[in-house]
Structure formats: C-alpha cells, structure tokens
Design a protein around this nucleic acid. Structure first.
Ligand SMILES: [Mn+2]
Ligand SMILES: [Mn+2]
Ligand SMILES: [Mn+2]
Ligand SMILES: [Mn+2]
Lengths: 219, 219
DNA sequence: TTATATTTTTAGATTAGACTAAAAATAAAA
DNA sequence: TTTTATTTTTAGTCTAATCTAAAAATATAA
C-alpha cells in the first residue's frame, strides 16, 4: 500500500502534530527523521498528491483524516509488537523500540488482529503509551508530568515521555517502572529539581527527569 | 547488513542449488523471483563482488560458504516465524508463507534467539520443512515422496514439496496434514496415479499430488 | 523600512533496483 | 559445419529516495 519511507514520514508527522500542537514545519520533520529539509519537501509533495496531507509552500503540512488513519495504524502495530517483545519474548523495555520500528511495517491486517488477540488486547505498551484500537481510537487517561505535581502529592508512574534506552536504563537504576509509586518530598522552585520517595529510597532528581515521567495522581 | 533484494536473491539461489543439483542459471533465478534476466545479471555481479557467490559470465552462479550462511539464516527466520504464526496465532498452514516472506527480513539476532526459545526450539516448520539451528545445521530425516512408495506400503505424511495455498487447501479437503497416515492401496503404472487410504476414506489421487507429498515409511 | 538571518524550495546529481531493446555468446538443429 | 534458436549480457532508461548547492521566500533585527 505505502512504501517504508512514506509510512515513516506519516508517523513522524503525526507525532509532531501532537508535540507542536498544530502545523508542522519542513525542518521539524527533517530533524525528526534525520534527513535533509530538501528531501522532506520532495516527500511532502508526494504525500500531498496522494491526499495524505495538505501542504502549502513555505507553510508546513497537516495530515488529512486519511493520513492520520494510516499513521495511527502504524503506531498501533509498533506498540502491539513492543508488548509482544516484552510480554512474550521477555525483552526489557529499553530494547524493543528498534525492533518494533521494523516490525511496524509488516503488511497484514489479519496478523495484527490475531497478535492483538494473542496479547489480550492490551491498552498500553511497555512505555505506558496507549495502543489505538482497530478503529484508531485511543484510550485517554488523565496523566500528568511528574514535574507538574506538587510537594507532598503522590502518584503512580504510568508512562515515559522520552523513551530512549539511556533514560529507561536510568529509571531502572532508580527502580522506577510502570506502576511504581512516587511521592514528591521536596521541590526546588529555582531549577525544578525534586526530592522524591520511591519504595524506601529517597533521592534527588533533576527537572529533565521529572518532565519526562508521566504519573497519575493518587489521593 | 544486506538489502531486502540481496537477501531474496541469496535465498532463491540457495533453494535452486538444491532443486537443480548444482550450477544455477540466470534464467532460473529470474523465473524463481519473477524478474527479468537482465536484472539478475546486475544483481549477481553485485553479489559476486561482495563474495557471496562465484560468477562466470554465461556460466551461472554458485553460493560461497558466506553466501550459504546468509541464505540459511533467512530460511531459519522464515520457518521460525511460520511456526509462530501457526502455533501461537492460530493461522492455518496455507496462510503463513506470505507473511513470513516479510518477517524473515527483520534484522535482530536477539529476536530470533528469543523467538526460537519461545517456540521451544522447533525442528520443523508447519509444512514439514526442517528449521536450521543457529549454526545453520539442518536436521536430516529420511523421507520419500509418496509417489516413490509401493502398493500396500504405508507411511506417515511428514511434509509437502509444493506449499502453495491451493495445494495445501486440496490436502485439507482430503484430510491430509503433517502426521496423517497414508496407505497405498493401488498404483497405476501408466500415469502414476494412486488409490490411497486416509483414515476411513479411500480415494484416487493423481501423480502430481503424489510427487508433492513427503512420507516416512512405516512397517 | 531596509538589511540580515533563517527557512524552505528548486535544480541537478547519485544510488539501488528494475525494465526494454539490442548485441554477444552458447546450444541445438539442419 | 553452417544455420537457427536460446540464453545471457550490455547499454541505456526509469522511479524512489536521498543528497548538495544555490535560489527564493519568510522572519528578525537594526
Ligand atoms: Mn517504540
Ligand atoms: Mn513504546
Ligand atoms: Mn514459507
Ligand atoms: Mn514453510
């Protein structure tokens, strides 16, 4: 149906639309998929002709409903495969992204239907990201960045914003994973750093860490 | 490591070397991967430069040890994925080949190691074809074509030579699958057709069928 | 508002892989 | 052993996806 490159562009643009809240620039796309802006212009013109996005010269792009549908389906496949790799093959959560980047392009509706069933129709992937259902509907949960919660509040970790192997390994070292309870003991106004409690341990984390961890507040 | 096209050529050449018992011609490759002979010449020259096969103009090609290693690894992946699709996702044996053609190109040693373990290190795929181990070693079994066995002998089906969906569906209709006992009740010298017994049923099969079914003779 | 900087697009080149048409080598038939 | 047929290779073209360099548009600063 679509080429590997086309699928990767659509997925990247979809993610950028959410991060940037609106129109996505040529440079933003180029940076995100590690290519040159001139290459992006070419591809974006091709995708516009195929009605997967709208494009006005110098004005950036926006996915059409059809483009979104394609992107969401790739994301669905990516996240289902990540669940498979962690739940069934016992990969660790910092090892699965690269492999899922390949698996997400396998073309077979039936395969995904069956994989989903085999995995028990999971709602979230190993990084806490929601898995769209077959109609593209995402389960919404109200989660907050750890950096947004107040002193003495407590939450349970439900996801990571950044999901590089390096960050995930840092979290492992600190014994933080999906489901871990985190209590904010102190918060430094100046630099946003925090003292938090995880299990019996209390330690310092920088703002960078706090704004890449999603938590659900607990009373 | 290798491109999709390169992998497909190596795999096709490997299979042809076995079918044709020796040197593989340009035309044979072209037919097998459904491309033009001129395209094959190009690719074969490229693979020769990479030392994956030896090539003499107008003389056909032969895989090097390295070329064989690559080909066998792809076949290993293909067959392991087929087992996964049938055993875990409950696909039928006539539905898995096309999907495995895609999955066999996923690049990750670790993935295959874990998949193999998850599946219980199977020795055969759903069509009865042997799965090479991680060193490329194939489990050899003495099996015969049904067409080669004599009247009143009996065997158990251990594999199919042809594994197109059409042929597999024919076998389903006749209630023949891996493990099925087959007894030869009659054999027509003229055209090689047979009367066989499968379970309680007795029926006629043509030579074409008999020479695409592998059996292991039982006393 | 004019000058400068940044972003984006165009023009032209490159690579992998495939194709067609024609030439060259080899095999088969007369 | 010529002639004819088949197989294989070469030469040249095409498309997808990328790149560099330069031009054009837009944004920012003086
Ligand atoms: Mn991922
Ligand atoms: Mn993920
Ligand atoms: Mn197969
Ligand atoms: Mn098979």
């Amino acid at each position: 149906m679509f080429t590997l490159a086309e699928e990767n562009y659509l997925k990247a643009i979809f993610h950028l639309e959410h991060e940037l809240q609106g129109e996505v620039s040529t440079n933003a796309i180029a940076e995100s998929i590690e290519t040159k802006p001139s290459s992006v212009t070419d591809m974006v013109q091709k995708l516009a002709e195929k009605k997967l996005l709208t494009y006005k010269r110098y004005k950036g792009v926006q996915l059409t409903a059809e483009g979104k549908k394609v992107a969401i389906n790739i994301i669905r496949k990516h996240r289902l495969w990540e669940v498979f790799l962690v739940e069934k093959l016992n990969f660790h959560w910092d090892e699965v992204h690269e492999i899922a980047e390949q698996l997400e392009h396998i073309q077979s509706e039936e395969l995904i239907t069956r994989l989903d069933k085999f995995l028990g129709s999971p709602d979230f992937d190993p990084h806490g990201d929601p898995i769209p259902d077959k109609h593209g509907v995402l389960k919404r949960t109200e989660k907050k960045l750890l950096s947004e919660i107040e002193k003495n509040q407590q939450g349970v970790c439900v996801g990571v914003k950044e999901s590089s192997a390096e960050f995930l390994q840092y979290l492992d070292k600190k014994k933080i994973s999906i489901g871990t309870k985190i209590k904010v003991l102190g918060k430094e106004f100046f630099d946003g750093s925090m003292i938090i409690q995880v299990g019996n341990e209390q330690f310092f984390i920088s703002h960078i860490i706090a704004e890449n961890l999603y938590v659900q507040i607990q009373e």
